[in-house]
Deep mutational scan, measured.
Amino acid sequence: AVSDRLIGRKGVVMEAISPQNSGLVKVDGETWRATSGTVLDVGEEVSVKAIEGVKLVVEKLE
C-alpha cells in the first residue's frame, strides 16, 4: 500500500495530537490524520510507527 512507505519517515505536527484526540502531521509534503500515545504540540518532529486504517501512529522524535 502507498501508506506503507511512510513507516519510519519523519514528519511535523500540524495540529496538536493527544491520546484522546487525533491531529494532523505532514510527512513528505502530504498531510495525514495521526494518533499518538502522548501529547504532541504543533511544530514537534515525529516519526511514523504504524498505520491504522487511514491514520498514522506517530511518536516524538528523540
Rank of each mutant, 00 (worst) to 15 (best):
G8Q: 03
K10W: 08
I17Q: 01
Q20R: 12
V42P: 12
D28S: 05
V2L: 14
D41P: 11
G11S: 02
W32S: 03
L6P: 04
T38N: 08
V12D: 05
N21R: 13
R33H: 15
R9G: 04
E45V: 10
V57H: 10
V46C: 06
I51H: 06
N21H: 12
E44Q: 13
V39F: 14
G23N: 01
G23D: 01
T38G: 14
R9C: 05
V27M: 04
G29R: 05
G53E: 07
R9V: 05
K26C: 10
E52N: 08
P19M: 07
V48L: 02
V2H: 07
V54D: 15
S47W: 14
V57S: 05
L61P: 07
S47F: 12
V25F: 01
A34S: 05
K55W: 09
E45S: 12
V13E: 00
S22P: 11
S22C: 06
L61E: 07
A34K: 00
R9L: 15
V42H: 04
T38M: 14
V58G: 01
L24D: 03
T35S: 12
I7Y: 04
K26T: 12
P19L: 06
D28I: 06
E15Y: 06
L24C: 08
E44C: 06
D28R: 04
A1G: 07
S3T: 15
A16L: 08
A34F: 02
L40Y: 03
K26M: 14
V58M: 03
E30S: 04
V25P: 00
D28W: 05
E30Y: 05
S47C: 06
V58E: 00
P19Q: 09
E59T: 10
G11A: 09
E30C: 05
L24F: 11
K55M: 13
V54M: 08
S22V: 12
P19C: 08
S36H: 02
R33A: 15
V13H: 00
V48P: 01
L61D: 09
S3Q: 12
V27I: 11
V39I: 13
K60D: 03
K55P: 02
A50E: 07
V27R: 00
T35Y: 05
G43I: 02
V13C: 06
S47Y: 14
G43Q: 06
G8H: 04
V2N: 11
D4C: 05
V57R: 09
R5N: 15
E45G: 10
N21Y: 13
I17H: 02
Q20N: 13
W32P: 02
K55Q: 14
K26G: 10
T31R: 07
G29C: 06
V12R: 10
K60H: 07
E30D: 08
S3C: 06
L24R: 07
R5W: 15
D41H: 13
D4L: 04
A1C: 10
T38A: 13
T31N: 12
E45A: 13
E44A: 13
A16M: 13
V54E: 15
E15A: 10
V39L: 13
T38D: 14
V57K: 06
P19D: 09
V27D: 00
A50Q: 13
V42D: 07
G8A: 03
G23K: 00
V39K: 15
R33Y: 15
W32I: 05
V48Y: 00
A34M: 01
L56E: 01
A34R: 00
G29N: 10
A1K: 05
V13K: 00
G8P: 02
E45P: 10
A34C: 04
L40E: 02
A34L: 00
I51F: 06
E30I: 05
V12I: 11
A50T: 06
L6F: 06
V2Q: 07
G11W: 00
S36E: 01
T31Q: 10
S36A: 09
E59A: 10
